[in-house]
Design a protein around this nucleic acid. Structure first.
Lengths: 140, 140
DNA sequence: TTCTCAGTTAATAATCATTATAAGGTTGAT
DNA sequence: ATCAACCTTATAATGATTATTAACTGAGAA
């Protein structure tokens, strides 16, 4: 089941550390999240290696690059089609695995060939709801 | 109808130039797009002024900041609820004003209070379709 | 009119995320 | 052992964005 899509790349210690950190990670971490987490136990790790590895994994469709955070890229090891629910108070992101049928009227397509979609839901997580938070960024 | 939400800020020449550039603009420009377009006829314009003005306009809900492009923020003067259709070949973005009813099952909400959503559609624009393009970034 | 103050602009430095470059390290086939 | 392909690292470079600070402007008070 979980054969990692037959990643055809050398599994160096650094790459294993990154893959291990990403495995089942639901935090949608950024490159620096990954670097910070790993460099604790792996002080020799270079930032470039993180970026290089992420780029390679992205090309191999092992991870997905998210354009959810306006400030930096985030990465998601869950490459199955799914959507996100984002807290506008603290930025927390949770996965939504429901499916939605979203058909565009031909007139709205502007001649595009539509290949997919992604829904960002916005809201307040339980903690921010209680605090009355309203900050962070509003949806795209 | 179009009273610009009673912008309560000094309408300096620089701000007017930015507002004028943004008015009815469907290109979802970035800060540097705006700076480049305006500084031609307004060579004294500072980049900081563009950022300052965009931040102010965003706070006043006169424009919306988009997290669509992983490389930079883009801005949309259309603050009515709408969605986007993005070309994965060239990055072109067009507006979709259809509405979609997207209800989340209670179990999927993780206790969030859901306040809104935004759909990104992905596809190939007519020009990229003909070229067989596949690059750019894939959806969040 | 002149002074003053708050808000604005511009020049600039600083920061952060990301990419590019170049040099050295590792591994596996020969 | 040698070579080449691939990796890693250190580092520089770039691009977007934010922060800082001094000069500027316009409206109202004196």
């Amino acid at each position: 089941m979980d054969d990692r899509k037959h990643i055809s790349m050398k599994l160096t210690p650094q790459r294993l550390a990154i893959l291990e950190y990403l495995e089942n990670n639901k935090d949608h971490p950024s490159a620096s999240d990954i670097y910070n987490a790993i460099s604790e136990r792996f002080p020799t790790m270079s930032f470039a290696t993180v970026y290089n590895t992420l780029k390679t994994l992205k090309m191999k469709d092992t991870i997905r690059e998210l354009a959810i955070d306006p400030d930096k890229k985030r990465f998601d090891p869950d490459t199955t089609p799914h959507h996100h629910l984002i807290c506008t108070g603290c930025g927390k992101i949770v996965d939504i695995h429901s499916e939605f049928i979203l058909e565009l009227a031909e007139g709205e397509k502007c001649g595009f060939e539509v290949t997919g979609n992604h829904v960002d839901f916005y809201g307040l997580c339980p903690r921010c709801k209680n605090r009355g938070e309203k900050t962070f960024h509003e949806g795209s």
